[in-house]
Design a protein around this nucleic acid. Sequence first.
RNA 1: GCCGGGAUGGCGGAAUCGGUAGACGCAGCGGAUUCAAAAUCCGCCGCUGGUAACAGUGUGGGGGUUCGAGUCCCCCUCCCGGCACCA
Length: 883
Amino acid sequence: MQEKYLPSEIEHAAQVQWTASQTYRARDDSDRPKYYCLSMFPYPSGRLHMGHVRNYTIGDVLARYHAMRGFNVMQPMGWDAFGLPAENAAIANNVPPAAWTYANIDHMRTQLQALGFAIDWSRELATCKPDYYRWEQWLFTRLFEKGVIYKKMAMVNWDPVDATVLANEQVIDGRGWRSGALVEKRDIPMYFFRITQYADELLSGLDSLPGWPERVKTMQANWIGKSVGVRLAFPLEFDGKQDKLWVFTTRADTLMGVTFVAVAAEHPLATRAARDNPALAAFIAECKQGSVAEADMATMEKKGMDTGLKVTHPLTGESIPVWVGNYVLMSYGEGAVMAVPAHDERDFGFAQKYDLPIKQVIEAGDIREAKKAIKAGGLTEKGLAQCEQVLSGSQFTPERWQVWYEEKNGVCVKSGKYDGLDYTAAVDAIAADLAALNLGEKKIQFRLRDWGISRQRYWGCPIPIIYCDSCGDVPVPAEQLPVVLPEDVVPDGAGNPLNKRADFVDCSCPKCGAPARRETDTMDTFVESSWYYARYACPNFDGGMLDARANKWLPVDQYIGGIEHAILHLLYARFFHKLMRDEGLVAGDEPFVNLLTQGMVIADTFYREAPDGKKIWFNPADVVVDESGARLKSDGQPVIVGGTEKMSKSKNNGVDPQALIDQYGADTARLFTMFAAPPEQSLEWSDAGVEGAHRFLKRLWKMAYEHVQGGAVAAFAGGELPEAAKTLRRQLHQTIQKVSDDIERRKQFNTAIAAVMELMNALARLDGDDATTRSVRQEALEAAVALLAPMVPHISEALYAELKPGAAMAWPAVDEAALVQDEIEFMLQVNGKLRGQIRVAATATREAIEAAALASEAAQKYLEGKPPKKVVVVPGRLVNIVV
RNA sequence: GCCGGGAUGGCGGAAUCGGUAGACGCAGCGGAUUCAAAAUCCGCCGCUGGUAACAGUGUGGGGGUUCGAGUCCCCCUCCCGGCACCA
């Protein structure tokens, strides 16, 4: 055995051996229970970053643990290879996105392999390859024919200078990232997935996912946003014609308090009103400036303008003004809202700003109670004062409006026949009256919108549609698929370069044979990442999208990925699974049984501002920070510190793990990443601490080396032990228990590692070279090495081979007999404060424990001879004496 | 703005079901070894007072429930993620 721990040597040897013997090949034909462990596949951005290392190490720990437990494990890997950064790189370096992407994949594959992940590389896939996206195009045509995919107009960010659609990320402070031009909203035709048709199932399906974090399910449920309300109409007359303005509201009980209605700038009524109203037209044009991102819409100043139009209140017949409001979203509900300033925060702010009437129609519950109590009489002085205080707020004033709009348990007032009704009763009564007038009905409304997938970009999966002047939008027939994306294109940032490629665009109509044009839009990259998990089961199948193996491996037993994917990616993948199920391609309802959302790896950001106001971001590795501030290493000039954020390409704050691997080896990088923070928490990167992880591995190596030098010995197999060895064995088996539980149930690896560290510290203190002690040491070392194997597989394998030559490393078993304790230590509290300890036999009764506690010196000191008020005994833990 | 999450020593974090706050590691300090250094080994290490024993205090801030709160409830502050064309 080597005396020194040489990571590069043992890691290389282990990896070569794993590859040669196909150790991590998932068996399609095995009868052992399957365990499909999937980590979210990477975007091939260039090099691995720490987030990848964290993600894949978590997956690898779980995969290796289950393999040691006898499962037939599948851990695949692939590349989410289409996307915007490849086009940006192309523009910056004048290389085709394809070449850039393939080079990145090759480099990152090497890096992943150097980390020693137990990946079945025979299943590798890349979404930019025709043999993958071909089936996505095939499914698209099927769904298009079924009507699950349809075409409609939708709003995008438009850069008028570059004449191109911008991603939200490319809009910076309302301007295009390259041109600096003010961004406009523009309506263009797009293809949509009818995800709203599955809204109810996507919502109720969350209940069938006990293995998902609560927070993720809550986020998804809120995103789907099912609300029960009333869709109702305000009749109006326009251009001499009778019409209706429809709105959706969850607060129909406040209908009698409506003082105006507001429509979105894009609403047809606004457009019509603006025809002969230049001021309104100008205001609408202003609303159409800026990005389409919801966050921008929600944080901008609420503005509006009276259209001059009036609608009729459906129940009172009152005339109500129609406003255009920049805060009304065309994409939600009807694109119009009824405004009740007295009981809605946003309406209130708007009414205050434009001096619109505010009409109270709900009385708060506490005010009602106070009025009742005073009327009934017999109040104490204090009670009366309380009631009066409540009533002092009962006059509606703008300063006190929160009391009114926040009130959920109020009743209707000043609402005619609805006075005195609570929320449910009022909504029911009003909905019934509206229905009788044919002016409304109860309706379920989702916040979820249909999924627009058209992207006016080159580097994506082509949408398989052909435009024919006589036949219209024709899906490409299956036998003509795939529609192959040419890979020799270099985009220039101004529009989709496919439009300039006659060899791509020109084609003939599959129906009539006439000359036709190919769609040049590509699909949202979320489409590729919505079904890759299923394709891993049969990546080489060329007869269809999936074969029978999909149902052998699915559902995924453990999915691991960043919390930033909690809503969109995971919702789309769940949706796609249901689409594939309804096509008869997969059997189950949900794709991922257990989900682990790792926290982000965050790091400092540094930037400089260019003369045109753009920010240029610098990598932390290229920056030195000291008392004088942050400076760029290359030129010594200062840079601005931008705060600690998620490691990302756009902020250029990713830390390259390669240096770590080169200096300390993969095991150290893996160990440190798992040890630094629990998986679900965000991990602030710092280089300090890596040294400690490496030191631990060196110590482990040294202890094993010294033990092995002493000659062969069998692991402890039973019999009486001296006290020190017995205690160590108890700790050993407690550690096995804890590490198993930490990995399998808690999925918290930092504490598992800490427990093994404690064990090693104890083992280092165990003296004695007699045969018995050595046999206990052998047992402990074998177990410790096996417990660490999921985290640090290379060193574990090397050490196990030295400790127990020729044996296969299995997960250690707990010896229940070793766990038995004779005496237990109880904490002694007096009035909840720790005052001492007592030792009691493990078999002691509650009475005996109590007696021992009261008899203790500490208790006597605080009792001062008096009997205790109360004694609380927590079994196995503590005694609290209340004096 | 809306939805979700977080805050514990100088730092990363532990405390799993309301029961010893600070495990484990980093940094620091002291010592051993060494010609010296690195490496390694041993010890100390929340804060305040005290030579010490010990006492008080302490989990972002304020309030509450409880014999007992880092953990549960209410209010607030700050930080992070998502917000539908970044992936």
